[in-house]
C-alpha cells in the first residue's frame, strides 16, 4: 500500500504541476472549460482500454488525437471558437463511450484509478510532464501576448496558428495522462482550479505560473494522501483539495487587501 501511495504521489504531483502550469494559460486563451470537454473526449478511449486491458492514457490519447484534429479542422473551416467546437465533438464522444463502456468499469473511467500504477508508468509520465513543461515554457510569452492582441503578437514575430496548435496538443496530452488520476469527468478541474487559485494570490506573471503549478501539485498530493487514509477514489479527493485551496486563496486575497 505504501509503495502504491508513493508512486501515486510522484505521478500525481508531476501531473498536477504540469496541469496547473498549462491551465494558467487557459484564462488568456478563453479555454477554461476546454479541459473538461477534452476529458469527456477521452472516455471512448478509456472504455476501450478497460475492455481490452491496455493503458488508459494510451486509449485516451488515441481518441484525443482524433478529436483535436477534428476540432482544429473545424476551426479552420468555420472560424468558430475552439470551445464551441469542442462542445460539439465531446458530446458525440461521450455518447459513444456509454454505448460500449461496461457498467462495472464506469467508475474507473469517470473518476480515475491510482491503485495500479507501475514504476515504469510513473517514470514515463514524469518524463512526459517534463517535456510538456519545456515545450509550453518556450511558447508561454507569445501565447500570453496573443491573448492580449493576436495582431500585436504576430507583428512581433509570433506564429499564432503554430503556437495554438502546440498548446492544444500539450493540453490533450496533459488530459490523457490526467485521466489516469482524476478520470474523464474532472480533468477541467485539474487544469482550471489551480490557475484560479494562483490568480487570487499573485501580482505578476512569474508568480502566477509558479503558484499555479504548486497549487496543482499540492492538490494532487493532498487528494492522494486522503485516498490512502479513507480508501475513497483519489479523483474526487484531488478536486476537493483543489477547491479548498482555491477557497483559502480567496481568504488570503481578501486579507491582503
Amino acid at each position: 500500500m505504501l509503495e502504491t501511495i508513493l508512486l501515486a504521489l510522484i505521478i500525481g504531483c508531476a501531473i498536477g504541476a504540469v496541469a496547473g502550469y498549462m491551465g494558467s494559460l487557459m484564462l488568456t486563451k478563453r479555454m477554461a472549460l476546454m479541459g473538461g470537454a477534452l476529458g469527456h473526449l477521452t472516455l471512448p478511449g478509456v472504455a476501450l482500454a478497460l475492455l481490452y486491458d491496455f493503458d488508459v492514457s494510451l486509449g485516451a490519447l488515441l481518441f484525443l488525437t482524433g478529436g483535436v484534429a477534428i476540432i482544429w479542422l473545424l476551426e479552420q473551416k468555420t472560424r468558430l471558437h475552439p470551445e464551441a467546437l469542442t462542445a460539439v465533438v465531446f458530446s458525440g464522444a461521450l455518447a459513444t463511450a456509454f454505448l460500449f463502456l461496461p457498467e462495472e468499469k464506469t467508475e474507473i473511467a469517470l473518476l480515475g484509478d491510482i491503485s495500479q500504477i507501475s514504476p515504469a508508468t510513473v517514470l514515463i509520465t514524469v518524463l512526459i510532464c517534463m517535456g510538456l513543461f519545456g515545450v509550453i515554457k518556450s511558447i508561454y510569452a507569445p501565447l500570453v501576448l496573443s491573448g492580449i492582441s493576436a495582431d500585436l503578437a504576430q507583428t512581433n514575430g509570433a506564429n499564432i496558428k503554430r503556437n495554438d496548435a502546440i498548446y492544444l496538443i500539450c493540453i490533450a496530452i496533459t488530459v490523457a495522462i490526467g485521466v489516469r488520476i482524476v478520470g474523464g469527468l474532472m480533468t477541467a478541474a485539474l487544469l482550471a482550479i489551480p490557475a484560479c487559485t494562483a490568480k487570487n494570490l499573485s501580482n505578476g506573471l512569474e508568480q502566477y505560473t509558479v503558484i499555479s503549478s504548486i497549487a496543482g501539485a499540492i492538490a494532487c498530493a493532498l487528494g492522494i494522501l486522503a485516498f490512502g487514509v479513507t480508501g475513497i477514489s483519489a479523483g474526487p479527493l484531488i478536486i476537493i483539495a483543489s477547491v479548498v485551496l482555491f477557497l483559502a486563496s480567496i481568504f488570503f486575497r481578501d486579507k491582503g487587501r
Binding site: S24, L27, V144, G147, I148, L152, S202, G204, L205, T209
Partner: peptide, 12 residues
C-alpha cells in the same frame, strides 16, 4: 478595442 486588458493572467 483590439487589445484585451481584462481576463488575462496577472501581468506587471
Amino acid at each position: 478595442e483590439l487589445l484585451r486588458r481584462q481576463d488575462i493572467p496577472p501581468l506587471k
